[in-house]
Design a protein around this nucleic acid. Structure first.
Lengths: 301, 301
DNA sequence: ATGTGCATATGAATGTCCTTCATGAAGTTA
DNA sequence: TAACTTCATGAAGGACATTCATATGCACAT
């Protein structure tokens, strides 16, 4: 048997208009075409779709079944086609985000809240578990945007700057290092360092300071949540290094001090990595604009 | 845009097998055909369905949407086709029944109970409100079987005898007419007659006795349920004429008597009217067999 | 790098089958 | 019965999906 959408549409049209000729008219075809068409299905399927005794063609029992199927199926195809046309018109699309930077949840959530209001037809998601290998995932179209602070020169991939931040040292107010104006790599010897649970290469404190200086803290404790890190720091269970804007969030406990790392300070830049095809899409550009605005707000604290 | 089932099947096959060539093999087509096919949709819809960067062709975001649609839609068509093949093989079908004879519910329900077990794929229903015009409805395929006691010589319509019954007079035990052995038309003068709420032409008592004899009862009261009719008769609120097998049902109140109508008695025959095409269908024949069996049980009381 | 093998793309030809045109048959209404 | 409407049919034409043959592109190994 060889049912096609055309047949479903025909059945529905004939039923709706109550006649072959009117249905044909509606579908911009000849009455003859429809007659041949239904004859074709009836022959192949071996069922009578219409009652031919009386002249305004009526659906038989089997025809009713087919009509029911048509009314279930056709809207689904229509939805798919609508989705595609939304895709090409740029109103719809997918925006699955991978973030290497662990603290970025803090800043990304409010951005996405705004974004979803503006682009309701874009399928937004944050894909966890891609912290490493995020850029290959971007190329494979597993994700559509990667927030990263390590731009690479990859083909078909654009890195758009989002904002600059400074990783700062955080410790309890009563911590001995609170006495220093500036924290150097050597100061970490003997300390318990609290970090996010990711590879060292992805942590600013290691990649930018400790690893080059070949300094190893006494212990490294990995903690998932920013709030918990600050809690531990405030109760003097260790020290941490966090982006300045994270620490500036007033909602956290305040029994800690912050100090710059090295006399010159360390400045890092966060980028949005996207596939070149996508970079110019309206909703993509809008997201990046929103992200920058939010970053400015965070910098103000 | 011009999405067809073939495209949905292709998307699904490529995804399932993870490759064009393998998918083509599965669908008994060439790899080239599939390549042309997806190119066709992509061109028409203006969306990329696959990521072509990596070699084992992978679905893009839009492709995933289409796959989701395919997995929703294809089973529905498959179900429809299965239904059709059930229809031609005779296992499935529709059996909507119209009954002119009002008392027949009593006998039909147990029949249908049995029938549904034997033919689970047949769509069984009793269509009320077709008591008149049932035979035209049969021709129009609004219903598939009519239980009638008035066979007509219609084209394309078969009347299969089901069973014979005798309309009998029913009255309260203390009713004056209980004294008579046989009830004649004239006896109804001055009586209150309780009938089903249908046209007189469809009531045996009128068509077979009172109308030819030009006798009019004092009053006619219409009551829907057989049990209620017998209740009213037992409490001497009127007399009734019912099929013998209905009265023989022991489950009803017993303070009434039954008497034959006329010395010869009246015998009526019930028929199953079906369209000639349907008469030979296995499930139709089975229903009629079941109906006859049930009638025999009822006659025994 | 260069080659080998696998996976997909492409172009022209072919054949299928859907649609149309023209007309006939059947049912409906007056 | 005539006139009209609605559907069916056969032949012809055309659109388009599939095939064959071949090219292009990517991946992995030497």
């Amino acid at each position: 048997m060889h049912i096609e959408f055309r047949h479903l549409r025909t059945i529905k049209a004939i039923h709706d208009t109550g006649g072959l000729a009117r249905a044909a008219d509606m579908m911009n075809m000849t009455q003859s075409a429809l007659s041949h068409q239904i004859k074709g299905i009836e022959d192949q399927a071996g069922v009578e779709l219409f009652v031919r005794r009386s002249k305004p063609l009526r659906l038989s029992a089997a025809g009713m079944k087919m009509l029911a199927a048509a009314e279930a199926i056709l809207p689904q195809v229509a939805a798919l086609e609508a989705e595609f046309s939304g895709l090409v018109s740029g109103k719809a699309g997918r925006l699955h985000i991978a973030i290497e930077c662990h603290a970025c949840f803090e800043w990304l959530f409010p951005v996405l809240e705004q974004f979803r209001k503006a682009w309701p037809e874009v399928d937004v998601d944050i894909r966890p578990g891609l912290a490493f290998d995020a850029l290959p995932a971007l190329r494979r179209e597993d994700v559509d945007l990667v927030v990263s602070s390590d731009p690479e020169d990859l083909p078909e991939t654009d890195f758009t700057p989002l904002f600059d931040y400074e990783p700062v040292f955080v410790a309890a107010a009563q911590h001995p290092l609170a006495a220093k104006d500036v924290i150097e790599a050597e100061d970490f010897r003997g300390q318990t360092l609290i970090t996010y649970p990711v590879d060292r290469a992805r942590l600013d404190i290691f990649s930018q300071l400790l690893t080059p200086a070949k300094v190893e803290p006494a212990a490294v404790r990995q903690v998932e949540l920013t709030a918990v890190i600050l809690l531990l720091v405030a109760s003097n269970r260790g020290v941490a290094v966090l982006p300045d804007w994270v620490v500036r969030q007033v909602r956290y406990h305040s029994d800690y001090i912050t100090r710059p790392l090295t006399r010159a300070g360390i400045t890092r830049r966060l980028y949005a990595a996207t596939r070149s095809d996508d970079t110019s899409r309206p909703y993509m550009a809008h997201l990046i604009r929103l992200a920058r605005q939010e970053a400015v707000k965070l910098q103000r604290g």
